[in-house]
Nucleic acid binder design. Structure first.
Lengths: 242, 242
DNA sequence: GAAATAGTGTCTCTGAGACAATATTTC
DNA sequence: GAAATATTGTCTCAGAGACACTATTTC
């Protein structure tokens, strides 16, 4: 079709989750050269066809889902294309193009060891290993930026929580994701905003069971939130920048 | 490097401008199959090397700049990567991947006929020709969405204006881009926001020279705005959604 | 009852929107 | 002065933040 040589086409995935109250990224040790043995984002070539010549990936999002399935062993509840990193310099082997995606999953989903044999780990996004290969560090930085940006006016952090959660838990997740304390004085305001936007719905009669203290009402994401992140009304930010 | 067949890699550009007070997209008639003769976005293959085997595009943004230079004959003051459209189905010839970009230019820049021989035209974004090839219609829709979204809290529309402009002109551009009347009652509020954010700076002593009515103070984008779109403080939207 | 956590009532204050008033130009 | 357009002064009102107060649990 094209008379020109084509760049190699890759998909990398920045998988984010909340672990020990910290926003973390999933990394695995590379199982091949270059940078064999180094911590890196899960990723892989776009498979127009598989090894037997049978059609495989439908589009790049499909590639991302396959990478998550094969290299992490999960199906992520939220997956979004982030940015395409490209150029002659990013990989010593030549001109490449990586359609970077990011995914959000509840912490519990990653508790089990990865399905693959590779060594994997979660790293706090501000304590990454040195010397990440290629532009993986830039990818992570951009993914975190995007998630923080969107979280300040959408229900995106819901994807980091289990199905049932309390409003104090949700408030904490927003604080962790945005890396910004929400002072107790703003609790009322936070609840007002979340409830007014209709991001969540009360689960009638279901309460948390804390070791101590008053139990909290349990909520779930409202039915339309999980399939589609609804932006709040323009003026109503979830958390202000100060 | 990869043992798999690679997808073809393309860059398409959604070039937006204001023409006759309307947000318009630049289209050119295709000069080759498929869809030869149809209106389409300017675009082209990524050139890892040129016809003589010499290195050409450095990265996809470089490809986009080359497309704008070769097919439109301009250097766009604002260029941003939008989204990568991909898959087996979007082009009958096979699995392709188009790293779509969008560009903003002042209307005057496109007044001269394109440098190339191809027939070109500006179409209002809500009056596109039928049967745009591939997913060009989705690309335009997404670009317009992105520009509208960003314009509501950044100085992005400044790139659609000439170097010197008045605040009433700027207000009109915001209204056109957002496709939303800004009532006269909000003029004060609009000026407050634009001025408070520091998006623009007064050009001392320079006034517009209208045929009739009071002349208006001329402004220019503040020095840092043209190289970098600065988002406004989270709570201060330029124009509310109502 | 004390400690711990959840949840509410209500005041203040900022900033967006409304709109009347004023300013500067051409004819 | 009339028409046209630019620019400002200032009121109102909604909503975010502050914070004291109430509620519900374990020990």
């Amino acid at each position: 079709m094209s008379e020109y040589p084509k760049p190699d086409a890759i998909v990398d995935v920045v998988l984010l989750t909340l672990h020990a109250d910290t926003l973390c990224v999933f990394l695995a040790r590379r199982d091949r050269e270059p940078f064999k043995g180094a911590w890196a984002l899960p990723g892989g070539f776009i498979h127009v066809v598989d090894k037997d010549g049978v059609e495989e990936d439908e589009d790049v999002e499909d590639t991302a889902r396959r990478v998550l399935r094969e290299k992490v062993g999960i199906v992520a509840p939220y997956l979004e294309q982030l940015y395409t990193f490209s150029g002659r310099k990013r990989d010593d082997r030549g001109w490449t193009l990586s359609v970077c995606h990011f995914a959000l999953v509840p912490g519990a989903l990653l508790a089990a060891p990865a399905a693959t044999g590779a060594e994997t780990a979660l790293f706090p996004v501000d304590m990454l290993p040195y010397d990440l290969p290629f532009d993986h560090e830039a990818m992570i930085a951009m993914a975190v930026r995007r998630v923080r940006g969107k979280s300040s006016y959408t229900s995106l952090p819901l994807f980091l929580l289990p199905e049932e959660f309390t409003l104090p838990e949700l408030q904490d997740v927003y604080a962790r994701v945005l890396d910004k304390e929400i002072p107790t004085s703003e609790t009322k305001s936070f609840r007002r905003k979340i409830l007014d936007q209709g991001f969540v719905e009360e689960i009638p009669g279901r309460m948390s069971t804390p070791r101590i203290g008053r139990p909290a009402q349990l909520y779930r994401a409202s039915s339309d939130e999980l399939s589609q992140v609804r932006p709040s009304a323009p003026l109503a930010r979830i958390a202000s920048a100060r």
